[in-house]
Amino acid sequence: MPAAPLLSAAGLNVTFPGRRGAPPARAVDGVDLDIGPGEIVALVGESGCGKTTLARTLLGLVPPTGGGVSFAGEPLGYASRTLKAYRKRVQLVLQDPSGSLNPRHTVYDAVAEGLRIHGYRGDEREAVAEALSRAGLRPPERFFLRYPHELSGGQRQRVVIAGALVLKPELIVADEPVASLDASVRGEILALLLSLRDELGLSALVVTHDLGLAWNIADRVAVMYLGRIVETGPVEDVLTNPQHPYTQALLSVLPESDGPPVILTGEPPDPSRIPTGCRFHARCQVLASGEAERAGVAERCRSEALPVLMGGASTQVACHWVGAG
């Protein structure tokens, strides 16, 4: 039997009021997603697809307008005391270490901040040293009195990770954790996240636009488009045999891709004006090429909505054309 999910979203919706009389924006529009103990899930998609809003909702930073989040089998409550306890168990790692570190705080104070917020009663110095060491900053005491501007980009990101680890969370949400780093440092940070999973049993949701990163770090991938997950499954299955035309297009532009790149036309639609039918149909290369017409599903692509994918580990795809094959 598979282990019960550590974090689970069911029927999750997040809607923001429209500006100047515009319809509400459905940033997250029906998402089921599970993250198991010790599992790394990559949430992948273009900018504006809703993945950061989904991550913030899973963290309790944005309350859902529909559906709910549960952690360790318990529904997430939004009372301040409940959220404070939850955020000790689920920590955020942001993409820009320079922006998330106070330039006037030493490394020691940056890492100790979470302990102080949560009223830690143990040996603070020992806890900070252990977190820095786990994040790869050794010997940790050498970094205590340094300031962010005295560190390299990779070292700053390790300090941010140490600040999350110091509370001994069960899950971290990493939003584009290596996007601002040099290519030479990215591999080190990804290797660190993998080692933390192996050593601590830590679960992670990694939010990224980079399918290459997903391939290197994730056990499972969820591809998001316009507020919905459109394909999900074990990373090897999805990235070696992508089914959804959107996933195929994202993979086609990677340097190691075999065929010609698929150039998607236009921008993702406005989330306040989600199209009927498959929400990808206006940009879909399969529909544009006539393949969907030949398969007899073109009209369904334009008019028939697809169901929300289940949140579990099985490979699933939301596409009329794939279903007709």
Rank of each mutant, 00 (worst) to 15 (best):
P97K: 00
P97E: 01
S98H: 14
S98Q: 15
S98T: 14
G99C: 12
G99H: 11
G99V: 06
S100R: 01
S100V: 00
S100H: 07
L101M: 13
L101D: 05
L101K: 11
N102R: 05
N102A: 09
N102D: 15
P103C: 07
P103R: 01
P103H: 04
P103L: 02
R104Y: 13
R104W: 06
H105F: 14
V107H: 04
D109A: 13
V111Q: 10
V111E: 12
A112I: 02
A112T: 04
E113L: 14
L115H: 12
R116L: 15
I117A: 13
G119E: 05
G119H: 12
Y120M: 09
Y120A: 13
Y120P: 05
R121V: 07
R121A: 15
R121Q: 14
D123W: 11
D123F: 04
D123G: 03
E124Y: 07
R125D: 15
R125K: 15
E126L: 13
E126H: 10
A127C: 12
V128D: 08
A129W: 05
E130C: 01
E130P: 00
A131Q: 11
L132I: 11
L132D: 00
S133W: 05
A135L: 09
A135D: 10
L137A: 08
R138F: 00
P140S: 11
P140K: 12
F144M: 03
F144T: 07
F144V: 02
F144P: 02
L145S: 15
L145M: 12
R146Q: 13
R146D: 02
H149N: 12
H149E: 04
E150C: 02
E150N: 01
E150G: 01
L151M: 08
L151F: 06
L151K: 06
S152A: 01
S152I: 09
S152F: 08
G153P: 04
G153A: 03
R156E: 09
Q157A: 07
R158I: 00
R158S: 03
R158K: 13
V159H: 08
V159P: 15
V159T: 15
V160M: 11
I161P: 08
A162N: 14
G163L: 05
A164G: 05
A164E: 05
A164W: 05
L165S: 12
V166F: 00
L167S: 03
K168F: 00
K168R: 15
K168E: 15
